[in-house]
């Protein structure tokens, strides 16, 4: 469980987060919002990569301030996957396992799922963007941690891989995990998420289920409901 209280973050002149209060329980929560609304910053605050100016974050009842051990409970998929270029996929997997101190995890199932075996001995700079993203996903789902944060997981994936991704998220959800997803693909969000949270100008504008959002905006279509929030607030 992740608890966030009164979270503020400013980068120079730009006040990105202006008081986020939220309690994230198990299930899939989609974080939505226009570009630059602070979705990635929020994720990075939870991971301790960005230090908030004000506010408190607890992960499983533990204040994360200046700690690092709590990240054992989190699997993170970064928005842009960039790996060291000189090493192969197999070496990278081995290295991340070693760094996480879990050597016993078996990745063969995920390798088969994403059809990555032919790339195992290829260097990472020779892979296409989509294949890199598959490697990225593999590294995220390999460790079976109770919290999963996915930042734009669909980037560069072909339809077949997208279906696999949805299936994976569904499986993890059934295990009772807490899953955070940011995405701009509304059909994907609609399919996988239990709840959505809409961030606008650094504040939570809406949190609830998709049907609640449709009621509130009086739209029948999810994509239109989201668009109507954006239009109403920019008009």
């Amino acid at each position: 469980m992740i608890q966030i209280e009164n979270l503020h973050k400013r980068f120079g002149e730009n006040q990105v987060l202006k008081g986020i209060d939220i309690q994230i329980k198990s299930g899939v929560l989609a974080i939505l919002g226009p570009n630059g609304s602070g979705k990635t910053t929020l994720n990075k605050c939870i991971l301790g990569m960005v230090f908030p100016d004000k506010g408190k974050i607890t992960v499983n009842q533990q204040d994360i301030n200046n700690r690092w051990n709590y990240r054992k409970e989190i699997d993170y998929l970064p928005q842009i996957a960039n790996f060291p270029n000189n090493i192969t996929v197999a070496e990278l997997i081995k290295m991340i396992k070693d760094l996480r101190n879990v050597k016993s995890k078996d990745e063969t199932h995920l390798l088969q799922l994403f059809k990555l075996q032919p790339f195992l001995n290829k260097k990472l700079n020779n892979l296409s963007g989509g294949t890199k993203q598959k490697v990225n996903l593999l590294l995220t789902f390999m460790f079976d941690s109770p919290i999963i944060i996915l930042d734009e997981p669909t980037t560069g994936l072909d339809p077949a891989a997208l279906i696999i991704l949805k299936k994976l998220i569904e499986e993890e959800k059934k295990k009772g995990k807490t899953i955070l997803v940011t995405s701009h693909i509304m059909s994907f969000v609609e399919e996988i998420s239990d709840e959505i949270m809409f961030i606008l100008e650094g504040k939570i504008y809406f949190k609830g289920t998709i049907s609640q959002l449709k009621n509130q905006t009086q739209q029948t279509n999810f994509e239109h409901a989201i668009a109507s929030i954006l239009i109403d607030n920019h008009a």
Binding site: W68, N69, Y70, K72, P78, I80, A81, N82, L99, R100
Partner: peptide, 16 residues
């Protein structure tokens, strides 16, 4: 050169 990779490491349970 290793900046993006550093970001990957930062999300792992490692001390900064």
């Amino acid at each position: 050169d290793s900046k993006e990779f550093t970001e990957l490491l930062l999300a792992l349970p490692l001390k900064r």
